[in-house]
């Protein structure tokens, strides 16, 4: 069973490189590529892929795409909702958190993937969450801290200065 994937990036070099790389891998079928978020969503609606690889900075990309796909879950007619994977050169904690909140399930950093991109995507398709970014630990601490606040009302987290 091949993993059906769409690739969204406004940089043509990246787009064609990823397409070449995944097309050469028998585990994947690239069912389409898009240069902006709207094009990408149309593609997803038409092709119902398993994975959506999305760039943060392309027009209407990033969180906008992730939110739209998370919102359309009920209309998926029994199909599994596609998993959104961010592929970005951006590593700031803010951006990671925004993407995860919008519904992305993994975050991969451009420039350090080498030959591992296909393997990582296969693992995400298999259900793993991968945060491959230097700020991942910080992001996790913040998200877990926030969740802790929300689930234990009345308990004030200790003041970090004391």
């Amino acid at each position: 069973m091949t993993i059906r994937i769409v690739v969204g990036d406004d940089d043509t070099t990246i787009r064609s490189t990823v397409e070449d790389l995944l097309s050469a891998d028998r585990r994947f079928e690239v069912v389409g590529t898009a240069a902006d978020g709207r094009e990408l969503l149309a593609l997803v609606n038409a092709e119902h892929p398993d994975l959506v690889l999305v760039d943060v900075r392309m027009p209407h990309g990033g969180a906008e795409v992730a939110r739209a796909l998370a919102g359309s879950a009920s209309e998926s007619h029994g199909r599994t909702r596609p998993k959104v994977v961010t592929l970005s050169a951006d590593v700031s904690a803010e951006v990671l958190i925004e993407m995860l909140r919008a519904g992305a399930v993994s975050y991969l950093t451009k420039g350090y993937l080498g030959g591992s991109l296909a393997d990582l995507l296969a693992r995400v398709a298999g259900g793993e969450v991968i945060l491959a970014a230097p700020t991942a630990q910080l992001v996790l601490q913040r998200l877990v801290g926030d969740a802790g606040d929300a689930t234990t009302p009345g308990v004030t987290p200790p003041d970090p200065s004391t």
């Binding site: 940089d11 790389l21 050469a24 050169a89 451009k110 420039g111 350090y112 993937l113 080498g114 991109l117």
Partner: peptide
């Protein structure tokens, strides 16, 4: 970000592919 880093990212991916 748009030029140097994207190009390097593409080179990184292609080198990975080449190594394999």
């Amino acid at each position: 970000h748009d030029e140097s880093l994207q190009s390097l990212a593409a080179v990184d991916l292609r080198l990975g592919m080449l190594e394999r």
